[in-house]
Design a protein around this nucleic acid. Sequence first.
DNA 1: CTGCATCCGCCTCGATACTG
DNA 2: CAGTATCGAGGCGGATGCAG
Lengths: 210, 210
Amino acid sequence: MQKRNYNQACSLAVALDLIGERWTWLIIRALLTGPKRYGELLDQLPGIGTNLLADRLKSLTGLNVAEKSGQGRQAAYQLSETGEQLRPITHELIRWGRHFPAQMDANAVSRPEWDMLAIEAMFQPDRAEGVNAILEFILSGFNFHLVLRNQTCRAVTGPAINPDVKITSDSATLMAIANQQTTTQKAEQKIRLKIEGDREVFNLLFALFE
Amino acid sequence: MQKRNYNQACSLAVALDLIGERWTWLIIRALLTGPKRYGELLDQLPGIGTNLLADRLKSLTGLNVAEKSGQGRQAAYQLSETGEQLRPITHELIRWGRHFPAQMDANAVSRPEWDMLAIEAMFQPDRAEGVNAILEFILSGFNFHLVLRNQTCRAVTGPAINPDVKITSDSATLMAIANQQTTTQKAEQKIRLKIEGDREVFNLLFALFE
DNA sequence: CTGCATCCGCCTCGATACTG
DNA sequence: CAGTATCGAGGCGGATGCAG
């Protein structure tokens, strides 16, 4: 029972044999925001079959793209170093996908973790020289933080240790400010935005991201 | 008859809905080396069903990732500007695929056009400051050329207008020289390599590429 | 002969049920 | 909670047909 593959002497075809099947890249997307357990992956991949998720995870760990830690009830999956190298490629593919807003269905499902990776993808390293900051977010109740350092941006789930600023809001409000459809002041008045800490660091959001 | 899609509010999922199906990215790979006709695409995609190729091409042109020019006998397909933006992403995925040489089957099929894109992918822009050169290749009878300019590298099918150097060889020989398993002199003695023109430009091959 | 469209067998996928 | 087993539906692969 050989898995279907292109069988071409071409690194692109090999890469697509490994991560080009349905759902596989989305599993990697989920793992790019940190280690996940089987059930968490199921939640972040609405519509995937449970057998398919198990198959893909076995394949990814077998290729050393991902790694399994723990057993049974405490099993968790995380990316290996090889898998981690898919992060910049995934960022670029996210940016490319923005050419097709019309393909985004109105009743499409959504998960806050997906926004985390989109934020990483919109980060502009060349504008961030010398920037060193930590921003904590609570967007619609979901908590994560951004680490800006050495002209890189990493989004991590959960609270930050010593954030420069803590932002409580939702993604729509922040997008509206970025697109200048409203202002920080107005959003705060309507209690759709709360800024605790260094407001200059908050403004980095609109200076360093697309 | 709705096409299967992830239906997620996530640009990555949208991108994968468009180019994540089987064969689609390989069609783009073929178009990245220049406009192709239907029959040429079939040849570069061994194993694809003829109906599937027609379906994918309709989908790609409908999304304005590719464009169709001409009709009937002279129909040809080429990438749009949006499709062209997949070039750097494809380069990175080619580089990533090199982590898995074991997955490359011994009796895998091969096409010289695939090497063209691999060469582009291995180009190191930061080593190419001020380089301005054109190299023409005839590898196992297949003719193409490289344009090095402004720290970019583009591989184009067919002969060059005024190449700085013309190289007649095969990819295995060039790889052997790059890996220092043999030397330029020895390869020339065995008539596995012929260099006409500027030998300094020929040596760029091993200075600017990985 | 090139550029597709149609048809059919097969394999992957998606959903549900079930087990440790 | 973390998977495995099963089965119907649908996308895929190959052969064939056909029009320009």
